[in-house]
Nucleic acid binder design. Structure first.
Lengths: 128, 128
DNA sequence: CCGCATCCGATTTGATACTG
DNA sequence: CAGTATCAAATCGGATGCGG
């Protein structure tokens, strides 16, 4: 039988038993998506990433990169030279995520004003 | 001088001076995207959300909803009846974010195994 | 230059109990 | 049912110092 009698209008990708949550918990921390976004155009050195992502601390960059490398989203290449050089780059797997990050970034830019307006302006008419 | 020979291939949507960061800081907390995703198909009551998002605490759900309402991504409708009923729903603005969340969720499902394999299996060949 | 380890304060989170 | 309040715990995040 095979009848998939699903009454839903579209296949709900959430609620698959935790797969989404599992991955979301990884990428929805404060910096992961920013780092992936920063690497969208090509490899970057540690210091370059630090400058590209304003506000991130060395510690958080290190930790975030370690996680991303562990998950296989980013690759790390250390060149044994003096001075040392280390480059980070999105892996093929990471590349598949980049477009989504960019889409999210574009959404953020596009709706930033509206969100800010809501956040500040939603005051009641009692304002006199 | 001059020579910024930066070969920029496409307009980088990041680094616009903080707009992305501003919004990202809002939505990249642990629960916001999950809540938006849970509301993708229609209004849900408080308790329904609690059940839909496994693992969230009452407190976190309350706080997250409050933020989302404040930002205008979610609307809250309280019906003055007994027992009380409150429904949450994505606003038109929130609806524009839903597709991105779904895309992210689909990505998560699609690459979950690969990520987990990397996380666990990246062990050195010493595995005897 | 890269990046890890430690200390320490700030923020976030969750369990529980209580109100409308 | 929906939401608040309080407290303790866990985590985050930054500054600093050290090692490769």
């Amino acid at each position: 039988m095979t009848g998939i009698t699903r009454t839903r209008t579209c296949p709900p990708p959430m609620n698959d038993g935790g797969a989404v949550r599992e991955v979301f918990d990884r990428i929805s921390d404060k910096w992961s998506l920013l780092v992936v976004g920063a690497l969208r155009e090509g490899p970057l050195r540690f210091g370059e990433l630090e400058k590209a992502i304003t506000g991130i601390s060395q510690r958080m960059l290190t930790l975030t990169l370690k996680h991303l490398v562990q998950d296989g989203l980013v690759s790390r290449t250390a060149y044994a030279e003096v001075p040392p050089r280390v480059e980070y780059e999105v892996t093929p797997l990471g590349k598949t995520l980049v477009p989504l990050v960019i889409a999210l970034a574009e959404w953020a830019i596009e709706h930033r004003d509206e969100i800010n307006a809501n956040r500040r302006g939603a005051l009641p008419p009692t304002g006199s």
